[in-house]
Design a binder for these strands. Structure first.
Lengths: 208, 208
DNA sequence: TGTACATCAGTGAACGCGCGTTCACTGATGTAC
DNA sequence: TGTACATCAGTGAACGCGCGTTCACTGATGTAC
């Protein structure tokens, strides 16, 4: 829907759109088992039984395909931010949010990891995608903090926006990382619980 | 000191050791301005006015040179963990630690970023280096948490090791990330303060 | 102190692999009448 | 309902760049006597 024109100028019909979709899916699938830098146009094409030349009809290079995938991930994560807008009545709400967040990440882990890796390396496109995706989360967290500050539950000297960004970093990192932690002895519940506590006590005060 | 033998079997003398060092320094310098994947043996060699063949006398490939650099960084960060072992008397101690940690990171940011990126991508060597480097920090943090739990300042249900790992993730991420946050309006002090508060309230309880 | 030899150090030039990319073509699908 | 034409879609095969890597060599340094 975003593209109506292939790289050689021909308009894309149903069949073409389907092929483009299969190329995207094959890219996502391969990213699960190998780093982006090892991902070759040939591999993506071969995965769906087509030739590299086909790939170039729909994408300029591998990165462009990954950008599209990352956009899609961002869109799918967006609704979760609404869960942060509502007032929380206790630690249980935080746990439930963290649990959903981590689950959503798990579904798109490969692509989101690549997006964040590329963003950290300074790639402008991926930085922007990440900024957009995280923006609504950070805003909602910061609003929470300010409310708690007005209510006297959080120190007014805390920078709400910095705290929100820090918590978002923590959430993303733990979401990307929890499988490793579990290998070291923490359970998934430990991870969720720990994140929820840190989140809750920072944005809503009153740690117990 | 670790290597006494070049890749072709000849033992390394003073002159050779100096060249190896210059190759390492040139690698580190180039990493500041470009991602690892763009780093070519030719570039590293040219930077110190030598030929690619020289590089291969000391390292099998670029990654091997980066591994050595990452090891060195780990060694230089290690003393900082001692600052975590001592009991803290207040938030100011946490601020001072975070400030030192971020400063130390800044000095080696390029190499540490590459190490963490590669570790996240699953490279075994870099994962191990990171585990070793972060291990003493995580242990010290977990010890803190357990002490606070015994003293009744932190909920005994919190998993001390998970909390310690989460905080370490946060610290690393903010250290790698603080320049971007500053571009968005937070000051460096905000970053230090926010990390210190989250750290302090999580491992020592009593947020105020 | 000087000479000869051994070993360490550095390099120019070339080979070749692997991949990105393209082009000219065949085949599939859609549409007008 | 069928035929002709236009356009969409896919591809085999090849070209060529860029880089990793090596080899046979020259030059520098060290050491034995």
């Amino acid at each position: 829907m975003s593209d109506v024109v292939a790289s050689d100028g021909r308009t894309i019909g149903r069949r073409g759109a389907a092929t483009r979709r299969r190329l995207l899916d094959s890219t996502a699938a391969l990213l699960v088992s190998m780093p982006v830098r090892d991902l070759r146009v040939v591999d993506i094409a071969r995965e769906i039984g087509t030739s590299p030349a086909t790939f170039y009809q729909y994408f300029h290079d591998v990165e462009e395909a990954v950008v599209v995938l990352a956009e899609e991930c961002g869109d799918e994560m967006a609704p979760l931010a609404d869960r942060l807008v509502a007032e929380w009545s206790g630690l249980a709400d935080a746990r439930s949010f963290v649990d959903s967040f981590i689950s959503a990440w798990d579904e798109h882990a490969a692509v989101l990891r690549v997006r964040n890796l590329a963003a950290q390396e300074g790639d402008a496109r991926f930085r922007e995608l990440r900024r957009i995706a995280n923006g609504s989360f950070i805003e909602a967290l910061a609003t929470h903090v300010r409310a708690a500050q007005r209510a006297g539950r959080v120190d007014p000297d805390l920078s709400s926006i910095t705290a929100a960004a820090a918590l978002m970093s923590l959430l993303e990192r733990m979401a990307a990382f929890h499988a490793d932690l579990e290998a070291l002895g923490s359970t998934r519940d430990d991870v969720v619980d720990t994140c929820a506590r840190i989140l809750y006590q920072t944005i809503d005060g009153s740690p117990r």
